[in-house]
Design a protein around this nucleic acid. Structure first.
Length: 395
DNA sequence: TCTGGGGTCCTAGGACCC
DNA sequence: TCTGGGGTCCTAGGACCC
């Protein structure tokens, strides 16, 4: 989907079309205060001047999506709001409305499944679609079906998307970016040398900032540069698994199937604080946040019908270092109190001297609630000795 | 003025078992 | 008396993706 989060907001506020708009930020919903000044005005009639600007933003958020006009200023996904404010202070800022975005996500995926049933979820705004057996899926290299999907999504949602059609997922993903927004791009196997090799290495889905930097140090900049290396050389420099994968990727080889169903591996909740907190000095505040995170993961588990065995915590220190600890129980649970107690024990195994900027709670080793061997004993006997208050509790 | 939140997968060492 | 070899699980960290 093209600039998905932003496009969803533009449906509500069409008066912002053509303007630089960024979506993102933390919990400071500046917009609500501003927009509440117009209680009886339809959303689409609220004057543009009333919307909050990036230059007035305060907080630790990052940008989730920027409209194309905003991107002209160099702002984009994952950029800190404060940095973006320097590049484009006049941009309008809106918070993420997850419920609304999820609603549109379900709608567009439903439209696609009605046309082509083999769909793999790739997050809220992306899917892989297997065209192979869809009637008409081969006409004009897939362009006819791609157009039909675009048209159907637009009719159902008013939103545009970009589609890449290729022999495999790896190339299709790259192709989908060739004609953004509202574009279609067909890449045939014989096009790899002319259309893929000139691209920067970072365009390969699976090469991130770290690998890019290492490739640059080795004087490899384009995908063609990687393809020119021997498999052995890549294995020597990047290890067995990654080296082989990189060689295949550079040659456009990818045999991963489109996976239509999958089970979750873990569920987690985490939060970055407005200001860094100290385990001792801000104990009460941290304790409340910690308990809330545990409660929310437990709610997520119950709502979705899962139980988990491994309870973990995640801390981020003021210098951005991350620490994780986890503990595997001998039975499955979705009990918030047990999650809280177990996570509390994990807390005792990390350094709590530096200030913290983030706290998270994770439950892994999931199983469907109905399919575990035996029901979790409600008052599971976590050893009495272990059941001493953790740092965020008591007193 | 740094850098969200929710995920997956991989690696590597150690425990433990046969 | 000198250290096998394979497998699985647990834990911590990290790369990467949307």
């Amino acid at each position: 989907m093209d600039a998905f989060f932003a496009s969803v907001e533009l449906l509500r506020y069409p008066q912002l079309k053509g303007l630089p708009v960024v979506i993102g930020g933390g919990r400071r919903r500046v917009d609500e205060q501003v927009l509440q000044r117009y209680p009886d005005v339809p959303l689409s009639r609220i004057p543009v001047e009333a919307f909050p600007l990036l230059k007035d933003y305060v907080g630790r958020g990052v940008i989730t999506t920027a409209t194309y006009p905003a991107r002209q200023f160099g702002v984009g996904s994952a950029m800190g709001m404060m940095k973006a404010a320097k590049l484009c202070p006049q941009a309008i800022v809106l918070p993420v409305d997850f419920e609304e975005v999820r609603r549109f996500s379900r709608t567009f995926k439903g439209v696609i499944r009605d046309i082509a049933p083999l769909v793999e979820d790739r997050g809220i705004d992306e899917v892989y679609i297997d065209f192979t057996e869809v009637p008409g899926g081969q006409r004009d290299g897939g362009r006819v079906l791609a157009r039909l999907i675009q048209k159907s999504i637009h009719e159902a949602t008013g939103l545009t998307c970009s589609i890449g059609v290729a022999p495999n997922k790896l190339i299709a993903k790259m192709a989908s970016e060739f004609n953004k927004p509202n574009g279609i791009s067909i890449v045939y196997p014989e096009d790899v040398q002319t259309r893929i090799w000139p691209l920067p290495v970072r365009k390969i889905n699976g090469i991130g900032p770290k690998s890019e930097a290492k490739l640059h140090r080795l004087h490899l900049h384009t995908i063609g540069d990687i393809a020119a290396q021997s498999r052995e050389w890549l294995v020597d420099n990047f290890g067995q698994a990654y080296g082989h994968w990189m060689h295949d990727a550079a040659w456009g080889r990818d045999d991963r199937p489109v996976v239509t169903e999958s089970e979750p591996v873990s569920m987690s909740r985490e939060t970055t604080f407005d200001r860094d907190l100290h385990a001792v000095r801000d104990r009460a505040e941290l304790g409340a946040i910690f308990t809330d995170l545990c409660t929310r993961v437990a709610e997520d588990l119950r709502r979705k019908g899962y139980v988990g065995k491994t309870i973990g915590i995640k801390l981020r220190y003021d210098d951005f270092r991350t620490a994780t600890r986890d503990h595997t129980l001998d039975h499955f649970t979705d009990d918030p109190a047990l999650i809280r107690r177990t996570a509390g024990q994990c807390l005792k195994r990390v350094d709590l001297a530096p200030r913290l900027r983030l706290l998270g709670v994770r439950v892994g080793k999931l199983a469907r609630a109905g399919e575990v061997p035996q029901a979790a004993p409600p008052a599971a006997p976590l050893q009495v000795a272990e059941h001493t208050p953790d740092l965020f509790q008591g007193g």
